[in-house]
Design a protein around this nucleic acid. Structure first.
Length: 438
RNA sequence: GACCCCUUCGUCUAGCGGUUAGGACACAUCCCUUUCACGGAUGCGACACGAGUUCGAUUCUCGUAGGGGUCGCCA
C-alpha cells in the first residue's frame, strides 16, 4: 500500500513555522516513499475561518515549495478538500455511530461520542508506545447544535475517507490521540501510523504562536528576505538530525535522508541567528542572475530601478557575501542605481580629515580620465599609477575613492564599483566631491 | 488538579555502558585584507538533581525538580 500523508491546517491565520514544519515533514515522508501528500483545509469552524487565511497558507506552502498531490487547486479522488464542503460524508459517518449506539444528545442538541473507557495505546513512531488509561474525562462533543461537526470527528472521518496511512502532526495532539483511536475503532477502521513531532518554542522557551518573532512564514520569511530553500533547510533541522556530515542539505538530499523514526521527541527553540546563517549560505551560492531575480522586489520596494539587467545583477552579486537577507541588499547597492545618494555622516568627516585628500582624489581622477580601457584591472592599474605619482600607497587612495563613488565607508572593491558604474560616472562623482565637499 | 511528552555547551544537536563528551550557530581572539564582509585558525562553553543496576553510567531503572502539552459546542 502506498503511503498517503496530509497537512490539515485550519485557516484561522497565517501559516506559522510550526505548521510549515509539520507540512514539511509530511511532504518529505511522501516524497521519500513516492507516496501522496494531501492538503486538506479544516474549515469546520465557520466563525473563525477566513478565505484570506486559507489563501495565505496556500501561498506560504507554494513559496516553500511544498507541492501537494491532492487538495485545493489540484483536485484529487478524495475531494472535496475543504471540510466545509463534506457535510454529507460526515452525516453518513455520524449515522454509523448513531446506529452503533455510540452517540447521545445534550439538552441543547449538541451530540457527544461515548468513549469506550478502555485503555488505549498509541503506537507512535516518535514517542514510542504511549498508553492512556481510562479517564474521567467527559465524552467528547462531535457535533454542534447547528449540525456542524467538530475537529476530532471530521479529522478522523477524513483520515479514513482519504485513506491516510500516516499522521505526522504536532505533539500537542498526542494527548488527544486516544480519542481519535477510539473513533477509528468505533468505525471499525484501522488507525494510521502516528508520528507526533516536537513543538517549536520561542527562544525564551515559551510556545511559539501568532505574533511571536519569527513565527509567520509570510511576514517573517517571505517579506523579510529569506530564500525558501534556506528556510526549508533550517526548519528540517528543528527536531530532526539527518544522518549526514553537513547541515546544509538540498531538498533532494533531505528527501533521501528522511526517516520519521529519527525525529526527536523533545521540543526545540527557534534560533533566528542560525536561520540567518543558513540564508546567507544559500544567498552566496546564487548566480548573479538568480540573485537579481530574488532581490528584484526588494530593490524595487526601495525605489531602485534599472534598465541594464547584467549591471544590476553584477551589482547585487558584488555584495552577496555581506548580507544575510535579501532585504539588506538595497542599502548596499543603491548607489549603483542612482547618482543622488546621501553621504554617510562619518564619510564626510573622513574626507575632510586630511588636507591632502583633495590632491589624492584629483590625481586619481586625472589618471582615470586618461584610461582608454575600463575594466577592473585597468581601473586598478590607474589607481596604482596615481598613487605612485604622489608617493603614497594605493591603500591610502582606495578609501577616498570609495567615499566619493558610493558615499559609504564599506562595500565591494573600489575597482568593482568603478567598473560597474562606468568611467563617466566615476569621474563625475569624484569631481562632485572635489567641488561640493572638499 | 488529572493525564501525557521532554531534559547534553547560550541555541540546534552527536552519543545508543568504558569517548580528552564530537559538530553547527552565536560569542571572543588571531590571520587574511583598500572598507565591510567571506574565508582560515584558535578559544570559551554542557551531560538538571538524587537514588539504584553495574567492575564501570551522559547512556539502563525509579524518584525529585524544571520545561512543554492536553483535559473546548477551537483546530
Amino acid at each position: 500500500m502506498s503511503i498517503r500523508v496530509r497537512f490539515a491546517p485550519s485557516p484561522t491565520g497565517d501559516l506559522h513555522v510550526g505548521g510549515a514544519r509539520t507540512a514539511l515533514f509530511n511532504w518529505l515522508m511522501a516524497r521519500k516513499n513516492q507516496g501522496a501528500f494531501i492538503l486538506r483545509v479544516e474549515d469546520t469552524d465557520g466563525a473563525r475561518n477566513t478565505s484570506e487565511a486559507a489563501a495565505g497558507i496556500i501561498k506560504g506552502m507554494r513559496w516553500l515549495g511544498l507541492d501537494w498531490d491532492e487538495g485545493p487547486e489540484v483536485g484529487g479522488n478524495c475531494g472535496p478538500y475543504f471540510q466545509s464542503q463534506r457535510k454529507d460524508i460526515y452525516d453518513a459517518y455520524f449515522k454509523k455511530l448513531e446506529d452503533a449506539g455510540r452517540v447521545y444528545a445534550e439538552e441543547n442538541g449538541a451530540m457527544r461520542f461515548k468513549f469506550s473507557r478502555t485503555a488505549i495505546t498509541v503506537h507512535d513512531l516518535v514517542c514510542g508506545d504511549v498508553t492512556f488509561s481510562p479517564t474521567e474525562e467527559p465524552d467528547m462533543t462531535i457535533r454542534r447544535p447547528d449540525g456542524s461537526y467538530i475537529f476530532h470527528f471530521v479529522n478522523v472521518v477524513d483520515d479514513i475517507e482519504m485513506r491516510m496511512t500516516h499522521v505526522i502532526r504536532g505533539e500537542d495532539h498526542l494527548s488527544n490521540t486516544w480519542k481519535h483511536i477510539d473513533l477509528f475503532n468505533a468505525f471499525g477502521a484501522t488507525p494510521p501510523t502516528y508520528a507526533h513531532i516536537p513543538l517549536i518554542l520561542n527562544s525564551d522557551g515559551t510556545k511559539m504562536s501568532k505574533r511571536d518573532e519569527g513565527s509567520a512564514i509570510e511576514h517573517s520569511y517571505m517579506n523579510a528576505g529569506f530564500l525558501p530553500d534556506a528556510v526549508f533547510n533550517y526548519l528540517c533541522l528543528l527536531g530532526w538530525t539527518p544522518k549526514s556530515e553537513n547541515e546544509k542539505l538540498s531538498r533532494s538530499e533531505l528527501v533521501a535522508l528522511f526517516e520519521p523514526q529519527a525525529i526527536h521527541s523533545s521540543n526545540a527553540k527557534f534560533d533566528l541567528k542560525k536561520a540567518l546563517w543558513f540564508n546567507a549560505q544559500y544567498l552566496r551560492e546564487l548566480s548573479a542572475a538568480e540573485l537579481l531575480k530574488h532581490a528584484g522586489p526588494f530593490l524595487a520596494a526601495k525605489g531602485l530601478s534599472w534598465s541594464d539587467d547584467a549591471m544590476a545583477a553584477a551589482a547585487v552579486h558584488s555584495v552577496r557575501e555581506k548580507v544575510n537577507l535579501l532585504s539588506e541588499l538595497p542599502e548596499w547597492v543603491h548607489y549603483f542605481f542612482r547618482d543622488d545618494f546621501d553621504f554617510e555622516a562619518d564619510v564626510v568627516g573622513k574626507l575632510k580629515a586630511k588636507p591632502d585628500n583633495a590632491a589624492l582624489l584629483k590625481a586619481a581622477c586625472e589618471v582615470l580620465a586618461q584610461s582608454t580601457e575600463w575594466s577592473e584591472a585597468s581601473v586598478h592599474d590607474a589607481i596604482e599609477a596615481a598613487a605612485k605619482t604622489l608617493s603614497v600607497k594605493p591603500g591610502a587612495m582606495m578609501p577616498l575613492l570609495r567615499f566619493a563613488l558610493s558615499g559609504q565607508s564599506r562595500g565591494p572593491g573600489v575597482t568593482t564599483i568603478a567598473h560597474l558604474i562606468g568611467k563617466e560616472k566615476t569621474l563625475a562623482r569624484i569631481q562632485r566631491v572635489l567641488r561640493d565637499i572638499l
